[in-house]
Write a protein that binds this DNA or RNA. Structure first.
Lengths: 191, 191, 191, 191
DNA sequence: TATGAATGAGATTTCATTCAT
DNA sequence: AATGAATGAAATCTCATTCAT
């Protein structure tokens, strides 16, 4: 019984996702150059050859992986209420939501951070990053403005550094980093 | 007439430093696996073969580079007064000193950050990092304690995240990141 | 359509044998260090890269070659009747069988002899050699004992030296060495 | 005080001998290709550079080493009385003398044996070997003729194989090979 | 004469990619 | 669509030889 074109389409998408998830793990552990096609194929449970029917080459796999992963970055906006952050409660929820994302999607953030540090490769991410950073900054700046901060931009930049730093610290010491303790302190200083 | 042992000693040390500096640049741009011995040799202005007179293999070059670079991390302590940070002035000086280091030694910090994110390699740095983090945290905790902060540890952790985040942000956008603006805000919140 | 696991199994075994045979020739002509992977690959009619699908590295190729070749040494026992050598006829047949092996498997014996002489490498063979020597000696000692020799061990040792020496002489001058003449003399002295 | 030309000549010769002795040890342990100039220079206690003032290149070092070593082979004739081997006593003395040489000059014989087995290199020795073999054979044939052996050539060939085999066995197991026991048996069978 | 740092050719090894099955 | 053997280019590494000192 031949599958319908739609089923086939669906199957292809699933297989592709399967490969992307595998490569996310392998790239994030070994870096782009350090990861081999063999490792990725094995992790994905397929043959090397098959990988090439889904992705033109290793470079293309990375490109698609970045696009795939960036959907996670935009998820950040899901925590932000439509009208922006208005109350301390909103603020805390957004913070916790974002930090939660960091924990859940460790592999992606780890890979993303490695790539953006590597001058070689960073250009692939610059455009995407730009957009994300503006959103991310804008949302917090709105909150500080609404609180009549005398320097909303400065506060937002500092908060941005905090969030980047916490991401980094979480990636370096995922099991021991005291996320909640630090969030409490953020709420004291910025809430 | 052969060179004296002393001359040779001197020569070797200089050449080794020359290679280490070159490899710092090349590794930091391309990552460990992405950097080739050819690139490093060319950057250092020597033949590929000679590199192996000074370093057993590529791995050993990285190991020695880490040790070489870590001296920069300990330089941080140079900014801290003997009795610890006591005044707001001390605090500001230490901050500015550390951020200055980040700027000056961009290559090292970029490489270091990439390595510590890569689970494959991170173990090489863990021990060194541990020591550095404790110093770094201890110094700031001392300051907050002396200021009668109700949660010196929390404040120090948050400041730590800030500094890590700023490092990350500086590495990503060295020319445009508004370091001074953010320092001002740190002084307002923590000073 | 992918090949069945069985087909692949078969293919791999054949290819491995093909490489082992090629490397036997190349190693035996050039020594271990003198033989290059390029030579072996060319002799085997494959690319250099493929060799590494079948053998971890050059060292491992040698190791497997030794095991592969040792089957030839144990073939020696095929000439020995189940109850041991009992008559002069048995004795002659075993001698001729062994010397025939030497001629037919010149490459293996040449390589084996070179390796065992090289102190660097000899340890790889010691254990195997031990076993073979004991069998080989035991078989002849049995014959001399049964003939009521007053020193079966001494006779067996001397015969052992003869066989080793003939092997050596055959390898040095395969076309001209008068094997049959020497066998005749052995039969006179020991038969 | 400048040295006289004769002294200089003498010194040069000594240094050359020192290098030859060192290379004998290193070649015999590692084979020709496996031995490096660095190893040899270190073993000789000189620099790599200096080695090249005494020998044109590695190949030439081997050539000269062969010539140097061959003097040992001709030493064999020293054990043979002027009129040839005449008595059983002469025969035994020659045997013991030769086997003594084998033990004392293990490195040379080991190297020599390895080289002659390696088809690549064997041609360098063929001519020399020819001469030696004829002498060696001739001397024993004379003895067997004089003893009215019905096949002096056959006996000499067999004895030749024995001596080659014993050399081989001594090189393989220098500490445990029962030379004296085997000599006793030779005397019984051929004396 | 003597040294050993330096070179460069060539060896070993890895791995992205292709292709016969 | 799926496999993994096979290739070849490029990477790592070794070492005989040279040469400035």
């Amino acid at each position: 019984m031949p599958r319908s074109p739609k089923q086939i389409e669906q199957l292809k998408k699933e297989k592709k996702t399967q490969i992307l998830e595998a490569s996310l793990r392998v790239f994030s552990s070994n870096g782009f150059k350090g990861a081999t096609i063999s490792m990725i194929a094995e992790e994905a449970g397929i043959s090397k050859g098959l990988l090439y029917t889904y992705f033109k080459d290793k470079e293309n796999l990375l490109d698609e992986l970045i696009v795939y992963g960036l959907e996670r970055m935009t998820m950040f906006m899901d925590f932000v209420p439509e009208k922006g952050i208005q109350t301390k409660g909103d603020f805390e929820k957004v913070l916790r939501g974002l930090l939660g994302l960091y924990h859940e999607e460790e592999d992606f953030w780890r890979l993303f951070s490695m790539l953006i540090l590597q001058q070689n490769i960073a250009h692939k991410l610059q455009a995407h990053l730009q957009v994300f950073m503006e959103q991310y900054l804008g949302v917090f700046m709105g909150y500080f403005q609404q609180k009549n901060s005398s320097d909303p931009f400065g506060e937002a930049m500092l908060l941005g550094a905090i969030l980047d730093g916490m991401l980094f610290d979480i990636l370096v010491a995922p099991e021991v980093y005291p996320v909640d303790k630090v969030i409490d302190m953020i709420l004291i200083k910025f809430g």
